[in-house]
Every structure is written in C-alpha cells, then in structure tokens.
Design a protein around this nucleic acid. Structure first.
Lengths: 178, 178
DNA sequence: GTGCCCATGTAAGTGGTTACATGATTCA
DNA sequence: TGAATCATGTAACCACTTACATGGGCAC
C-alpha cells in the first residue's frame, strides 16, 4: 500500500534509476516488498511532480539513464509517514519497511508503535489459544479436524515466533519519543 | 486473489447469506483472509451467474435474507482450483485456504504442493543465512546495521518456524496423488 | 418513535497487473 | 548483424477501497 514510501526508502539507501530500482525490488528488497517497473515509473513520475525526488543531472546527458535522488521534502515525508501511520497486527512488512527507514535516516521513535503491535499480537495469540482449548482438546480428531487444527497451529506459531523477534526490538530502537 | 474460492470454501463449510459471510470473514476466517461485504456481494452475484452457487429458496420468501449454497459445479471448481493452481513461496495464506478446502471436501492430494513449497522455503532460508554470514559476521555493528540485521532475522525466523510447521503436513495430508 | 443492528446493494476513485511498445547498448 | 540486456514508458483491465444509499426488524 505504501509503494511510494518503499521507493523513497530504497532511493535513500542508494540513488538509482527506475530500472535499477526494479531490479533491486526483484532481489533483496523483494523478500518482503514488491513493485513492478510500471508501478515504479509511475510513482517516480508522481514524486517528481510532488517535489519529493529529482533526477541527478550529472550524467543525464551521457546516457538515457535517469538516476533519482531524494530531496529534503521527500526525506521529511518518509519520516512523517513512519511516525504517523498506524500499523495493524498484520502489517508486519510495513513495520519492516519502517525499520529500514529508521536504519537509513536515523531514530524515528518507533518503539511505541512496536510495543503496541506486541500488545495486539499477544491478544490475538490468546484468542487462538482459547480456540485451541475449546475446539481441539478432544483426544482423537477426524482428518478434517486435524487439518483445521493444523491451520490454527500455523497462526499460533506465526504469532509466537513473531513475538519472540519483536520483543527484542524496542531496546534496539533506543529511547524513542522526541 | 482467490476471493471467489475463499467464499466457496466458506459456503461449503456452512451455507450463509452475504451478510453472514461478511461477519464470518470478519472473525475466524479473517485471521488469514479478508473480504469486505462489497466484494462478497459482487462475487456471489457472479457465482450465481456462473452456476457455482444458488440461493436456498426455503425461507427466501419469509425474510429478505438470501442464503447461498454451493452447487456441484462450484464444488468441482474448488477441487480443480486447489489441485491446479501453483503456489509460490509466499503464498502461505493460499495454502491455508487450500487446506480448508481439503478439510471440507476431502483429500485433494495437496502433499506434493506442500513438499514443493518446503523445498522453496529451505532454499530461501539458505539465501538468508548466506547474507547473514556475509554481511553481519562482524563483531560490532552500527545502529543501522543492527536494524538491518533485525530485518533479516525476521525473515530467517519466519522461514524457520513456517518450515517446522509445514514439515508435519504431508503425513497429515495422506497418500495424495490420485 | 428513535436508535441500533440486520441486510443488500451502487458508485467513484485508486492501485496493481498484464500486455504492448520502443529504442539504445553490448557482446558474440 | 543478430540476440540479449538495458532502459523507459503507455494503455487497458480488473480488483479492492471508501463512501453513499436504502429499508426492514426489533428493543427501549
């Protein structure tokens, strides 16, 4: 949903052409975020309009390649976005994106958001465990029930392992706040 | 992406009105799949056209409520979809959906698909571990590097815990094949 | 009779996907 | 010189989102 911000962050890490961005999104970044070259070119166009990014003019004449860099306004927009948009329990990739932003432009005070996500995730985990107790306590289960239990266990494991990971974050994120 | 199939499976589990479906998608199902009431009504309309579902006429006269049930053609479409569509490494929720289908209409022979996903997930995990070795072996890391490492670790943990879960599946899914 | 939930829809906007299109550079 | 890759775009379609809209049933 935040394609433009994903692109801004990628450009903050390294100014690139649309083509290079597309390749980067196909590799490292793509493991948790994807964008096709059509989206990238469209967003780059819009962000130039908005004054968030600009084409580096140096070698623009030499080749057709257009290298984009982030302008101060764009940088500020990333910070604003990271601070202000709320994250739901399922917005884990958005959190990863925000962490990238924090890594590249410095402490943004994300600790509170992470703590809230942890609270929400614990709540959901409790819900899952309650369902587990209620529906799958029986000694023997039919094939269908075993499968439904497996589906529930997928949810439980996901929450548990995410929580384990997330609980180490707040200290990493530092003091936060201002 | 497979909203119609998600709805079909929900209807196989229990014939419902559009309104009820929306509420069910807001609760249990929603933990890994979501659809708004607008999508649901649209898809129900299309699926009636296609002959996949029909309105149960019994109490249709009594209230405004329209209860839908899945017709044999729709059931067959679910089976076809579960068997034939390929799943990528990241299509975990789609796999859960297929497991629900398998739970409700019986063995569909999904074991091979799961085994392939496991192979792909192991491959990706290896990639992550290679990046870990290469980029984060240093004794001391800057704040930014620690954050990037945390992002990578999120990916590693996710793969590991998913694999642990998935490896128990093939035996549950039974003989498979025909 | 007022407010809330049930119940079903339409309409507009936006973003993502797929297909199409073009031309430059590079290497065999 | 032909093929592959680099590099940037346009166009059409489709799905999802958000907002709007309507009316019945029920409880206080």
């Amino acid at each position: 949903m935040s394609t433009p911000h994903a692109i801004l962050i990628a450009l903050l890490e390294k100014p690139s052409s649309g083509y290079d961005l597309a390749r980067r999104f196909d590799r490292a970044i793509a493991y948790f975020w994807q964008a096709t070259h059509q989206q990238i070119y469209r967003e780059l166009g819009r962000m130039v309009e908005a004054g968030w990014v600009a084409v580096v003019e140096e070698d623009a004449a030499a080749t057709r390649k257009k290298v984009y860099r982030v302008l101060p306004v764009g940088r500020e927009e990333v910070a604003r976005w990271a601070r202000e948009t709320r994250l739901g329990v399922d917005d884990r990739n958005l959190l990863l994106l925000k962490l990238r932003a924090d890594a590249v432009i410095g402490p943004l005070g994300l600790a509170d958001q992470v703590r809230q996500m942890i609270v929400d995730a614990r709540e959901r985990l409790d819900t899952y465990r309650a369902i587990e107790q209620r529906d799958f306590g029986a000694p023997s289960l039919t094939r269908g029930q075993q499968l439904q239990y497996a589906i529930l266990k997928a949810g439980i494991r996901t929450q548990e392992s995410w929580l384990e990971w997330a609980e180490e974050l707040p200290s990493l994120l530092g003091s936060g706040e201002q």
